[in-house]
Every structure is written in structure tokens, then in C-alpha cells.
Amino acid sequence: MWKNRAVQTLLIGAASTSVLIVVLIFLFLGKEAAPFALTPGLSALFDSKWIPVSFQRERFGILPLLSGSALVTLLAMLITIPFSVLGAIYIAELAKPLEREILKPFIEILASIPSVVLGFFGLVVLAPLVKSFFGLNTGLNALTGAILLSIMAIPTVISISEDALNSVPHVYKRASLALGASQLQTIFRVTVPAALPGIIAAVMLGVGRVIGETMAVMMVTGNAAIITANPLDPVRTMTATIAAEMGEVPFGSVHYQALFCIGVVLLLVTFGLNVIGQQVLRRYGMRQ
């Protein structure tokens, strides 16, 4: 009997580590970022310039970084959504069973390619293509980053959307077909609307993945901290800023704290997206 107790206690301990890690993440990011709130104060973050190292005046405005992340994410989703949703529809509804068995592993492989390898591919293959296609000086810009990010997000969004499409009850489809609707009519008028919440959740989780991606964007977006809406301009994202600058910054300096502030913002944004996405998925799952 004591053995059962001991085992159970151990298992509860193991299960609690996840909670502990979440708490520690918030705690330690907050702890390292907190002094920034005193000097120079949080308002310093709402500056339009990020000039962390300067002989005159350092500026820690994260607005250009936020706008960089937002631009890249927006562009990436513009590419990701049609490709993933239509791809998921094809795989879930139209592909023959054997075809599906071949398509799915391919897309899973895409998901398992390390982001630094994709970044490298973007740097040496994609960026020159973008450069010559648009006749630019450099192919390292928001668009190239967005294309790479969409390559990363597509497998996530496809697989969750596909699950959502598969969980639409067969009776709906059969009823629609029995009423004389064609297969495509059934898909676009019945199946997709019924699976919509799941697809939306998939897209939100995809956005979370894209915002948090670091290496690939750092390698191909050009890393200029400017506020722009032009896809062909180089931009710098929040993640790339942390990764690029943390290595060279003195621990405990204001710059160091500012980078942790970016981390906190990143954490809160992805956390929010995740919570909302899961909520949508859960409500959707309950309705089934």
C-alpha cells in the first residue's frame, strides 16, 4: 500500500513540473525585465526608435520591432491561410486514401525541418530569387521572411484544419449529397462552414508559431529596425532582436532588461493567442 502511495506522490510531482515551469518562466522573465520599469520606465518602450547602443542617447522603443513582427506575420498568414486551408480540404475531402497516406508524411517532414535549415535555404536560395524577381538591392526583406515563415506554419495549420474537417459528422455530408448537391458544393456549403471554428483555431495557433519563430526570420528579414508597411523593405522582428543582441549585451544593463521586456511582450502575445485558440477548439470540440 505504501508503495502505491509513493508512486502516486512521485507521479503528481512529475505532473506538477509543467505548472512549475510555467510559473518560473513568467517569474524569471518578469524578474529580469522588472528594473526597466523603474528606470527608464515602461513608457520608454513606446518609442519609435530602437537604438540600444549609442554614444548620444540610447532608445528602447519596441514599436519598430512590433511593427516588424506584425508585418512579417501578416504577410506570412496571407500566404499560409489559402495554401493550408485549401490543402487541408484537398487532403481531408478529395484525395484518394492511398494519396492521403503519401501526402501526409510529406507535410509532416516539412514540420520537422529545423528552422535554421529553412533559414539557410531562405538565405541562399529564396532571397536571391526574391531579389532578382523584384529587381531589388537585397532579397533580405519582410517578404522573404514571410514566405519562409509560411513554409513553417503550413504543416501546423494543415494538420489542425484537417482534423477539424474530419470531425464534421458524415451524416451532414451524406444528407447534402442526398439532396443532389455536388461534392464540391457539399464541401464549401456544408463541411467547411461546419469546420470553420476549428480552422480559425488552426490559423490562430499558426499565428502563434509564426510570431515566435526566431532563427529563420533573423537570417532573412534584413534586420533593419524601421517602421514600414512595404513588404520589400527589410524589417526586424522582436524574436530576432533578442537572439541577435542578447549575446553581446552586459548582463543586468538597461539594454539587457529591454530585451527581457521584449521577451515578456512576446510571451504575453503568444500566451493570449494560445488561450483563445484552445478556447475556440474546446468549444468546437464540445459542440460535436
Partner: peptide, 12 residues
Amino acid sequence: TLAGVPSIVYGL
């Protein structure tokens, strides 16, 4: 939550 935390945040 852990599944959604960006990898660079894990780094921090």
C-alpha cells in the same frame, strides 16, 4: 501554455 511558448523565450 508550454507548447505555445516561443523558443527564444525558452532561451531567455
